[in-house]
Structures are given as structure tokens and as C-alpha cells.
Nucleic acid binder design. Sequence first.
DNA 1: ACCAAAGATGGTAGCGCTACCAAATTGGCG
DNA 2: CGCCAATTTGGTAGCGCTACCATCTTTGGT
Lengths: 342, 342
Amino acid sequence: MIKPRSRRGGGRPTISDVARKAGVGAITVSRALREPERVSEELRRQIHAAIDELGYVPDPNARALASARAEVFGVLVPSLTNNVFAEVVRGIYDSLSASPFRIQLGNTHYSGLEEERLLQLFGSQRPAALIVAGIDQTPTSRKLLESAGCPVVQVMETGPDPVDMMVGFSHLDGGRTATEHLIGAGYRRIGFIGARMDPRSQRRLAGYRAAMEAAGLFDPRLVTTTPVLSSVSLGREMFRDALAKMPTLDGVFCNNDDIALGVLFECHRASIAVPKTIGIVGFNDLDMMQVAFPSITSIRTHRYEIGRRAVAMALAAIAGNRPEQRIVDLGFELKRRESTAR
Amino acid sequence: MIKPRSRRGGGRPTISDVARKAGVGAITVSRALREPERVSEELRRQIHAAIDELGYVPDPNARALASARAEVFGVLVPSLTNNVFAEVVRGIYDSLSASPFRIQLGNTHYSGLEEERLLQLFGSQRPAALIVAGIDQTPTSRKLLESAGCPVVQVMETGPDPVDMMVGFSHLDGGRTATEHLIGAGYRRIGFIGARMDPRSQRRLAGYRAAMEAAGLFDPRLVTTTPVLSSVSLGREMFRDALAKMPTLDGVFCNNDDIALGVLFECHRASIAVPKTIGIVGFNDLDMMQVAFPSITSIRTHRYEIGRRAVAMALAAIAGNRPEQRIVDLGFELKRRESTAR
DNA sequence: ACCAAAGATGGTAGCGCTACCAAATTGGCG
DNA sequence: CGCCAATTTGGTAGCGCTACCATCTTTGGT
């Protein structure tokens, strides 16, 4: 005798329950949900009535197993607390909230190994798309991405060799623009202060260096970096170090806004006039930059928009019309403020 | 003739491939992975060798379908960019990264309706546990949580009536402590400035009010609130409003640190002496509070630890030993700094 | 009126895994 | 030395859904 296993799922209604109640085949219910246009209006109404009555919610696991494709976007970022990535992620969530896609978020902690592990893990779920931060994947990660069998969007940066698609901007140009602005404002002994020197920060530094060298101002002693995670207090400390090393400093381009804020506070504390004695430029243009006193010049980046755009491109690719422009440069904007208005 | 469907999964090895290669039954492979102690060491070695050689990764969807339980933690927070929740989430991720559990993160945007929708969605995945921010779920959400059939941890706050478990602290006590500190420091016309008045902020306000009334200092005109999302620039604006409304203000307790920072910057801009003319207290004690000039007194909360603790409790409950202490109060700490050192 | 093409619906057979039970093996003890 | 319990392994039958194909209409052209 065949005894059906007592409903493991705790009695939640299944697609067959709906089918029975609506007087149709299970497959028709499935179709009514996924390709409504292929089912007559009449049946569609009956089916939806049955769904409402039973409170049926499709099981995403069964769906993924049967269709060999999960309605999941895998998203990999190096940090959850860094405001910049938080905004990218927010853009992704907002763009996906009305879609059937779920999000699988991974935190790589800026580690290539961790990225490989998570990519491996995410791959086992057969995601509908992958969004990863950065363009400096390890060879293993890159291979994993290439063989993922789904659209891949690399975000935050642009570069010459996308795995599939890219949305971001040039950090090198950003660093150069920031530095050229300081030079143009009359600053000469301009330092670079950078925490958490990930590849993006490295490229900002390269931009700084290019601008300084072009102006004949570069001096390696002007550069202060650390691999430590960025924070406002770290910005303060690093600025003190930089000043100790190079007392004639008259400007700083900071890796990011947290560092810039730390520098500003230290200037207040040490009674160093901003922008008169020292000019400060940040990166990302967080809300607080325009409120600070004096307000801080920064490179505005379009984080939220990057998230939205990445999803839009992935969605288009899933729908079959891969955007012809595979690399999207959203640029940046120099926000001139009091901290460099000499 | 039965023609096996061409491997939908794109040829990834399955558990049977591993079993064949290791010369054992599929079920033994399954066991070797989930309950290794029930499999002889001999076979375990062979199986793992086969797994490594084939590069086998279990399909979580198939696993979830067969076992009616997904290795997923559902996590619901009201905001992804608010640093406070970002830290809770980070604590959760860090605690879970070495476990087989994945995380399904949902953003409710402070909306009860959105919370219900996400809970419904998450429920359909049969998560191993649910972690939700706050204790003010709608009746529908509450019912959804109670019938989730898995451990549930409400985080960020404590309260009398947990769905299952709770980790947090008393926002009312926090608000009271902050306000009493200002009163103790000699401030009298102490304002409350609060953005994004979610239930937690409401309770901080209640604590403020209790302290002010106890000292005979309460005046409704001292309270300035808005439902708008909190930001540093908003803090600045609200402080200006508060000052316009009540020019004799000599202190402010801010809803959170962003607001407090906005207040500080406006004081700089308007040449209002801190702490002499105005005392400032924030809430959460973000890193920048101790770096600010003057440094800002704040209520330090243990966000990261809340995330870790919530996971620990859920994990214990899953393992069958539900912690006897179902409500964990992690408290807070008043950090006295220059902004109230009159 | 007839037939091909297009549209709507259903049946069957898995997707990859694990719950449940059965069978085989081992060991301890009277 | 046999018997029962404990331990180790395997077989079978689904979990809830969808891909694939078959079947049954309907439509329109000649």
C-alpha cells in the first residue's frame, strides 16, 4: 500500500491543491502564474480565485529544482557597513523589490578567497544573475563568473575587459580630477591619505599621482596609506601622521569622506585653518560633506544609480535583449565647497 | 524508450555521481555530509575524495525541497543604509559565514505592509530561523511569525511579549539616561530633535519626556520631530527650526548621531559655543562621535553584538536547546564627552 | 467542406535530494 | 553459542514544481 508521506510542509497548499479546486491541471496553474498570456482569461480567473482562497504561495525551492534556474540575484560586496556599498545594495534591492527575484547578498570582507568561496556557493544555486563589486577578481573567481551561465554585472568601476557587463566610473579619473582641483586652487604640497587600500583606492591614488606628476609636484613622502579599514577616527590619526612626516602640507586628497571628515575635525582641534592653511577634498560626497563646517569638497559618485543600472542591465539580459552597451560609465562630479575655496 | 532529460543543470555533478565514484549508495553520501558521525571513517574518506575530485557542491534547492527546511536565515530590517542596522546585519553575516546557513535579507523601508509582504515571501522558503528588527509588528506580521514554524528573534529592542526570543535594549531607558545626563550637567531648556520617528525613536522620546517631567522641565515646544528619513543635513535644518521656535534652547538630545552631527555643524556655522551655550547628546555612538570637535556625548549601543547574539540564540534553538533566557538585554552605555562638559 | 496552422490544456517524467524503513553487520552478554 | 540491541548501509518513494510532448480545440484559407 502506498501511503503518501504526511505532508512535510506542514500542510501548506501545493499547486495540485489549487489545480483541484480550480478544476484544471496542475500544469495549467503553473502556466497561469508564469506565462499568463498562454492561458484563457476564463481559467486564469478561476485559478486566481483558488489561489486566493487557499492562500497558495509557490515554493521557490521546488520551482528552482524543476526549472534548473533560481529566481535569485547573487550580489557580492566587500563590506556591508561601508556607506558606499550600502547604497549600491539599496539600489539593487529597490530595483528588484517589485520583481519575483530574491537577492542573495554576500560579504567578501575585501578578501579574494572569500569571494571565491561565495561565488562557488552562489553558483550552486544557479542564480538568475550575478552582481559583483570591482573588476579585480582572482583568476579563479573570474573563471567561476564566466562559467556561471547567467548575466554578470561588475559594478563600481569600469575597465577594459568585462566578464559580461559593467557599470561604474573611473576611479583614476576621479582621483586625478580631485587632485587637479586642489592644484588649480593654488595648493602645492598636497598629500594623499588613504585607508583600506583596495583596488579602487589604488586607482584613485594613481590618479592623484598622475596629476601631481603632471604638475611637477609629486613627492612620495606626501602619500600616507594603510590597509586598515577606513573610519573617521583613522582619518584623524593618519592626518596627524602625515603632518608629522611633512609639516609643510597644505592640502589633502582623501581616499574617502570618512577620512576627510577625520582630517577636518583634527584641523579644528589643532586650530589649522581650512581652507586657508589646508585644503581638503573627499571622495563619494556623502550627505554630511555639504553640511560640514566648513563644507567639504568631494567627488560625488552615483552609487544608488549604479545599483539600479546594474539590475536594469541584468534584467534586460535575462529577458533576452542584452544591452548593446556592455560598459556603462556613470561618471562622477566634482562638488566644489568651502574646504578648497582659498 | 526512456531518454533521460539532458542534464538541465548543465552537467554539474550530483550526489549519485559522487556515490557511484565512491562505490556507495547515494544516501550514504548524503549522510556523510549531514551527519558524518553516522558513517564509518573509511567510507567518509572515500566519499570526500570523490567529492573533491568531481567538484561536487550540493544543490540547496533540492535539499530544501526534500527536507522541507531550507538552510536559510530570513533577516528583516527597515533600512540598509542606516549604519545601525548595517552593523546588526554585519554581526549576523559574520556569525553565519562559517555555518551552512545562507541569509535572505529583506528591507522593509519602515513599512508594516512591506514587512508583511516579505514575511509572506520568506515564509514560503521555510527558513531555518527568522530575525526581525523591532517589536512592533502588525497583527498580521505577528501571526506570520508565530506560525513560521522556526525560531524567531526580534532584535534591537526588548519588550514584555516576545514572539519567541528577543535581543536588544530599552530605548526608553536610553532616552531617559541621555536626558538625565544633560539635566545633571546643568542644562535646563533641553530640546528633543528626532527624525524618522519609528517606534524606537518614539520610545527614546518617551524617555526624554519622562526625565524632563521628573525634573519639572518638560515643555512640548522643546520637541521637534519629523517622519522624514534621518540625515546630517536634516539635523542641521531641524536644529535651526528648533532654535527659531525656542531661542532660549541650551541643550539637545538627538534621536541619533547623524542628527547630532548636523546640530554640531550648525553650531559651528552660527558660532554657538558647544558645550558652553548648547549641550549636545547623540544616540548610538558611531565612531565619528569621539573624533568630532568637540567630541559628542552619545549613548553607545551594541549593534554588532546584537546581531551575533541573535544568531547564537537562533542556532541554539535550531540545535534543540532553546536558551532559557528568552529576552536578552544588552544594555547601553553613556559616553560622556566634550559636548556636554560644561 | 476540408486541412493545416495556431492556440489551449493536460499527462508524464523527472529536477537532486532526503525521510523512512529495511537489511546487513557487529558486539555484548547471559 | 545464540539472541537481542546497536551500528552501519542501502532502497524506495516522494518533496512541489516545470520541461517536454501529446492531445484536443479553434481558426482561417482555399
